[in-house]
Design a protein around this nucleic acid. Structure first.
Length: 575
RNA sequence: CGGGAUGUAGCGCAGCUUGGUAGCGCACUUCGCUUGGGACGAAGGGGUCGCACGUUCGAAUCGUGUCAUCCCGACCA
């Protein structure tokens, strides 16, 4: 391809509305352009990258025995009513009506559609297992799209769905996909970590995420997830799912008797601990949440943080938020109190579910709110002064230096970009939608399902996050839009132009994806653009051509060598 | 949805306090000159100043409303 004809506009400056480096670079280098909030045009260079990623995914999925198909982007509400998700998926589901007033939605994921395909097409266990996948645009009306391609509303995704006769089969299908995913990301030039995760709105039991770790000290960290991992064994998990063994801390408040004392203006744990001159580990913190519209009081040791996803899962909820002040007032009034946040406790509260984190069990002679403003109960003990809640669960956020549940070593935390996700769905959708097959014993059974996603456009953006420098992108070879760019330094030097054209034509003839910068630009412009766009190899034809030498530059490490044109061609063909 | 900020040419910005014929850099067009790290000169083209209403003789500038975008939180590939 000739640069003079290539549809690309590089910008001299970074776009003002971009925050993370992949967004900045992809816009500045002319790969993408925003159409509207969270929705991007994929320009020719970007489309080539995306097709590269797609093809790697295709090859590995096909090799793993999956079959590609394509489902509609627009889906009827009926299927979502059947699965029960029409009412629980929330505002992220882009709903619309057709001219007859019939409710439809833009596909954010395709469990419903694939399940309808399976129940029509699969009648017998003899047809199982089967794994079907597609590569397609998805639309999720995200609350806050950001970070360019990392969190768009419209994005390209590969989604696969497996159908098995039993759990054992699902385990196998799951393992095959995990293997395929490792191959895919490795081929894309991305190091990933497979971590345990919460299964969220998709549903199901077991799930893992594939994270590109990006824990660099960069000021704009694109990693939206905290990943906890063990420094010794292989344990790793998303913060919304991670568990740990706590280090020993003081849990005895050492108060000689239980009494309610004045603790003015101690709205936070820090203020309270400072006022009483005690460690925060002998305080029982009480927080009121709203889960699917119902009030929940969560108790946790003062030094720890509630992990909201874990808490929500205790109640199998879909939506969680901390209660507003007016809601707290309402709860207090209903129980005959008037305490504000900071002085709340479980004793005497009515019409509210109470759940305690495991950390509060061992507290002795501790401090807790008593629903009176500017007062706390000190020296409290479970069963004597306050009832220990019946519902006890792990609802805490793991922290760095907690101990690994598998081996006891220290846990560390790092930021990650989630590029892939695999779930064991089980029968969630097949039961709800009555999707069954006839098993060997002649009985009708629901399919045992799994689902497996990869963010294609996110993967490409993650590659930029991992592979770039101050001059621009450094594409991994496997997903670069072109492999090599030939740059004649001066378009007025006939020899340079002639040699450059020869190299270009020879590479073209050898089916190499090659660009030639035949624009009538100064050398600086051409070299800057080549670096910015991030083509893995550059062959620069300059003055040294009189000695039959060209410059061979490897973008990955910015190394340069002077070699002959023939050697340069041979080098490319050997890669 | 809550908190903060910003909307002026394709991109990046100034002008607004103190109202008076809309500017700069890059990009774009033509000509000249230049060609190893985003040159230079000359001449051009391009904007209902997000939108609406109001105040005023007169609004990019002041007021009200509205829309959009970005950042921080809850969501997820």
């Amino acid at each position: 391809m000739r640069m003079s004809k290539l549809f690309v506009q590089t910008l001299r400056e970074f776009p003002a509305d971009a925050e993370v480096i992949s967004h900045k670079l992809l816009v500045r280098a002319g790969y993408i352009r925003k159409l509207t909030n969270g929705v991007y045009n994929f320009l020719p260079l970007m489309w080539r990258v995306l097709k590269k990623v797609e093809n790697i995914v295709r090859e590995e999925m096909d090799a793993a025995g999956a079959q590609e198909l394509l489902m509609p982007f627009v889906q009827p509400s009926e299927l979502w009513q059947e699965s029960g998700r029409w009412d629980v998926y929330g505002k992220e589901l882009m709903r619309l009506k057709d001219r007859h007033g019939r409710e439809m939605c833009l596909g954010p994921t395709h469990e419903e559609v694939i399940t309808s395909i399976a129940r029509e097409g699969i009648r017998s266990y003899k047809q199982l297992p089967v794994n079907l996948y597609q590569i397609q645009s998805k639309f999720r009306d995200e609350i806050r799209p950001r970070f360019g391609l990392l969190r768009g509303r419209e994005f390209i995704m590969k989604d696969a769905y497996s159908f098995d006769v039993d759990e054992e089969g699902l385990d196998k299908s799951y393992e095959i996909m995990a293997k395929a995913y490792r191959n895919i990301f490795e081929r894309c030039g991305l190091e990933t970590k497979m971590v345990q995760s919460d299964s969220g709105a998709i549903g199901g039991s077991v799930s893992h995420e594939f994270m590109v770790l990006v824990n660099e000290e960069s000021e704009n960290n694109a990693g939206e997830n905290d990943v906890f991992y063990c420094t010794k064994c292989g344990y790793s998990a998303n913060s919304n799912h991670a568990v740990s063994i706590l280090n020993e801390v003081e849990t005895d408040g050492k108060f000689s008797k239980a009494e309610i004392i004045d603790t003015p203006n101690t709205h936070s744990i820090e203020e309270l601990a400072a006022f009483l001159n005690i460690p925060s580990t002998v305080i029982c913190k009480a927080l009121i949440y709203v889960i699917d519209g119902k009030y929940v009081l969560a108790l946790i040791r003062g030094d720890r943080t509630v992990e909201e996803t874990k808490l929500m899962n205790v109640f199998a909820g879909n939506d969680i938020r901390i209660a507003r002040n007016d809601e707290i007032e309402e709860i207090m009034n209903a129980s005959g109190f008037n305490a504000v946040a900071g002085f709340i406790g479980p004793k005497g509260l009515k019409n509210i579910e109470i759940v305690a984190d495991e950390t509060v069990k061992d507290l002795k002679n501790f401090v807790i709110g008593c629903n009176q403003n500017d007062k706390h109960l000190v020296g409290a003990n479970w069963g004597i002064d306050v009832e220990l809640p019946q519902r006890i669960a792990d609802i805490r956020l793991v922290e760095e230096n907690d101990k690994c549940v598998d081996c006891g070593a220290q846990l560390k935390v790092t930021k990650g970009i989630e590029v892939g996700n695999i779930f064991k769905l089980g029968t969630k959708y097949s039961k709800a939608m009555n999707a069954t097959f006839t098993d060997r014993d002649g009985k009708e059974k629901p399919f045992i399902m799994g689902c497996y996603g990869i963010g294609i456009s996110r993967t490409a953006a993650a590659a930029v996050e991992r592979h770039h420098d101050e001059y621009g992108i450094k594409w991994p070879l496997a997903i670069a839009p072109y492999m090599v760019i030939v740059v004649p330094v001066s378009d007025q030097d006939e020899t340079q132009m002639k040699v450059a054209e020869e190299i270009y034509n020879k590479l073209l003839a050898a089916n190499v994806e090659v660009l030639i910068d035949d624009r009538s630009e100064r050398a600086g412009v051409k070299l800057k653009d080549a670096d910015l766009i991030g083509i893995p190899y550059r062959i620069t034809v300059g003055k040294t051509i009189k000695d039959n030498l060209v410059e061979f530059k490897t973008r990955a490490n910015n190394s340069v060598e002077a070699i002959t044109p023939d050697e340069a061609i041979a080098r490319i063909l050997s890669l």
